[in-house]
Each structure stands twice: as structure tokens, then as C-alpha cells.
Design a protein around this nucleic acid. Structure first.
Lengths: 147, 147
DNA sequence: TATTGTTATACTCTATAACTATA
DNA sequence: TATAGTTATAGAGTATAACAATA
């Protein structure tokens, strides 16, 4: 027979305990909040960071390829890229081979910002490791990286 | 020296490979999409499901307690609960002891809907297990449940 | 016809501040 | 004065559909 240990009984999660999605969601919310605050000085959101990182390592890729790689809607990418272009971080070049495509690449300023973003993102990752413990962090990364 | 195995080189994730948050986010998006589609017949969102589940197992708790338990903004809960109340799934009772608090509880219809929701959510969880593999699913649940 | 980029719409989520009523 | 619930706002994210230019 279970006994209460505190005056106020703890609130139960009920059916949620069996659902991985609930715990994934909670962790994801924590990650976004910490990431956004950490990169606030350079005003780079998680989505913008992922876009800059992928363009950096895949110079000349198209918007459709970028959208599919990151699982972002093509329509949403338009506004996202427009802002990065306005800030002088990226460039959209019409492809010579296929007039429909935009070849994406970082501008010098984008490379600089990405370097700062990487440094700040590393600090965020450090806090995530602190929270999870290094072993659990490695376990999760290994389990999720190759899906 | 690495060699290319396909005509078109695969798109690289670059710096994202070191960030657990990226992979957590991708999985979380998959989970939400599948959950929403699975529970579409009864029009219950992930947030609504979590609210019904916690109220069910903690009859009479307040909105502030519920908000803190689920990590939802108090302000957002208001509209969420309002809709569930309009649908006849929950009830807000003024607390006799403290006039500021609303004691939350499921109405009979809410209990019925939650039972259907649990059945559909189990199907969703089955698909998640299929995608991850049973061992990985158990590994992740164990690693995330006690944060 | 199909694809790429674009525009538009509607709804939800997130963050924030401020208001009211009760304590 | 502090707390519980509420209202309001702005900015993102998500899901759609439809359009023009190009293939």
C-alpha cells in the first residue's frame, strides 16, 4: 500500500507516462527556450541556425532541397530566407542551368554570423549536457542521429 | 578517403550533427503530425489530450497547477479549457475554500472521449515503436521519463 | 504536365504584459 | 501585497491552396 510522503500529493501524469512523445515534447521546449535565449545577442532562431548551417555545408543547393533536408515547408522557407537575405547573411542566385532554381550561398557576413552562432550554440549544448548528464546526452544523440 | 556512392551527393547537416536539439525537434515534429492525424476523428490535439489525462488522474486540481505540471502558459490554458468546457468534456467549479481557484474535473462525456483518445493514442504509440524499434523506444522512454 | 519559388489564409503556439477578483 | 484566472497583443510555426515562371 503506497503512502504519501508530502502534505500535498504530487500531481500524476496518468496516461502520459506511457507516451514517449510527451517527454520528447517537454525536452524540445526546454531546448528551444535555452537556444533562443543563448543566441538572442545575434538574433538567430533555431530554424535560422539550421538554415545557415546547411547552406554553409552545401553551397548552391536549392530552396526545395533545403526545405526537404530540414523538414520545413517550402512556403515557410521563402520568408525565412527573405529575412536572412535582407540582413545580408545569404544570397539567392538564379541557377544558370535551371531558371526555376535559386542557388543558395552564404555571404561573408553570413559566414561571420554563423561562426558566432556556432560558438553560442556550443554553450547551449553544454547546458543541455549539464542537464541530461554526459552519458545520457551521448545515449540520446546516438539513438536519434540515424533515423 | 571517402568516396561518393550516388550521382547526387547527399546533403550534409554540418554543425547540426552535434546538436541533440535538432534531432529531438525532428522526432517531435513527426510525433505531433502522427498524433494529430491519429486523433483527428475525435478532434483531440496533443495539448488537449495531455490536459484531459492529467485532469482525469488529479480531479479538482487548479488551472495554475495544471499549467505548471504540463509546462503550458496559464494564459494559454484559459482558451484551451474554455473549448473543452464548451464541448462538455470538462467542468470548472469555483473552489469553496479559495474563491480564486477553479477545481477542474472531467464530465461524463469527457471520460468517454478520453477513453477513445487513449485507444487511438495507443495506436499512435505503436507506430512510433515501429519506426524507432522497440528497444530504442524503451531506451528513449527510460532516458527521458525521469528528468 | 511537373517543378520551383511565391503569395495568401487560417489556426495554433509562445512570450509578454496588464487587468479583476480574491486572499 | 500576492495569487488565480483572464484578456490582449505580437511574433513564430504549421497546414493548405493556389499562382506564375520555367522545365
Amino acid at each position: 500500500m503506497p503512502t504519501r510522503r508530502s502534505e500535498r500529493p504530487a500531481i500524476l501524469l496518468g496516461a502520459l507516462n506511457g507516451h514517449l512523445g510527451y517527454f520528447i515534447r517537454r525536452l524540445q521546449v526546454w531546448v528551444f527556450q535555452d537556444f533562443i535565449r543563448t543566441l538572442a545577442p545575434i538574433k538567430i532562431s533555431p530554424a535560422q541556425f539550421s538554415v545557415l548551417a546547411v547552406i554553409s555545408d552545401n553551397r548552391g543547393l536549392s530552396q526545395a532541397e533545403l526545405a526537404m533536408t530540414l523538414g520545413i515547408e517550402r512556403a515557410r522557407l521563402v520568408r525565412l530566407l527573405h529575412r536572412l537575405e535582407q540582413r545580408g547573411l545569404i544570397q539567392r542566385l538564379r541557377s544558370a542551368a535551371d531558371g526555376r532554381r535559386h542557388a543558395l550561398q552564404l555571404r561573408p557576413r553570413g559566414r561571420t554570423v554563423l561562426m558566432r552562432a556556432n560558438a553560442l550554440a556550443a554553450k547551449h549544448e553544454g547546458r543541455l549536457i549539464d542537464m541530461l548528464g554526459a552519458e545520457r546526452h551521448a545515449l540520446l544523440l546516438g539513438a536519434l542521429r540515424d533515423l
